[in-house]
Amino acid sequence: MASEDPFDSALDLLRRLNPADTAKNVEAICALNPSLTEDLLESVDVPLAVKKCSRTGREFLCCDYNRDGDSWRSPWSNQFEPPVEDGEGVVPSERVRKIEVAANEAFDTYRELYYEGGISSVYLWDVDDGFAGCVLLKKTVAPSVKSGSGAWDSIHVFEALDRPRAAHYKLTSTIILNLGMKADALGKMDLAGNLVRQVEQDAAVEHDGSHVANIGRMVEDMEIKMRNQLQEVYFGKAKDVVGDLRSLQPLSETNRDRETQREMISNMTNRG
Rank of each mutant, 00 (worst) to 15 (best):
L113W: 02
G89P: 06
P83I: 11
I155Y: 04
T56V: 08
G117F: 01
R95W: 08
L36A: 07
F158Q: 06
S74H: 07
V135S: 02
S74R: 01
K52H: 11
S54A: 14
F60A: 04
C53N: 10
W152K: 02
C62Q: 14
P34W: 08
A28K: 14
V157I: 15
D70G: 12
C62S: 14
D129Q: 15
E59R: 12
E38F: 08
G150C: 00
Q79D: 15
K24D: 14
P92S: 10
R111C: 03
K24P: 03
S120F: 02
E38N: 09
I119W: 00
L40M: 08
F80E: 01
E85P: 05
L136V: 03
Y123Q: 01
E116S: 14
G118S: 07
E27Q: 13
C30H: 03
D162Q: 12
D64R: 11
V46E: 10
E81K: 03
L61R: 05
S71H: 07
A160Q: 04
Y65L: 14
S120K: 07
E105A: 13
P92A: 04
V127P: 01
E81F: 09
A28W: 13
L61I: 14
W152H: 05
A49H: 12
D70N: 11
D129A: 15
L40Y: 00
V50A: 06
V96I: 14
R95A: 13
V91F: 03
T37W: 04
V157R: 01
S35P: 06
D70K: 08
S93L: 12
S71G: 11
E94L: 11
E116Q: 13
N25E: 12
A151H: 00
S120L: 05
T109I: 13
D45G: 01
S77L: 09
T22E: 04
D128G: 06
E42G: 04
Y110H: 12
T109S: 13
V26Q: 07
E88I: 14
D39G: 09
A160T: 09
F158Y: 03
V141N: 03
P83T: 10
A106C: 12
Y115D: 10
C134I: 15
E100L: 04
S43V: 08
V122G: 02
E105P: 02
I155P: 05
I99H: 02
V26E: 04
S149Y: 05
T22W: 04
S121R: 03
P92D: 01
S35A: 14
E38S: 12
H156F: 13
V44K: 07
L161G: 05
A102Y: 00
L161K: 13
Q79Y: 03
F158E: 00
S144N: 11
E94K: 15
V44E: 08
N104Q: 09
D45I: 00
G69T: 11
T56N: 08
V127E: 09
T140W: 06
Y65A: 02
K51F: 06
R97L: 09
C63S: 15
S154I: 05
R73N: 06
D129G: 01
D45R: 07
A23T: 14
T140Y: 01
L161T: 12
E159C: 03
K51D: 09
D68L: 05
L61D: 06
Y123D: 02
E27L: 10
L48T: 08
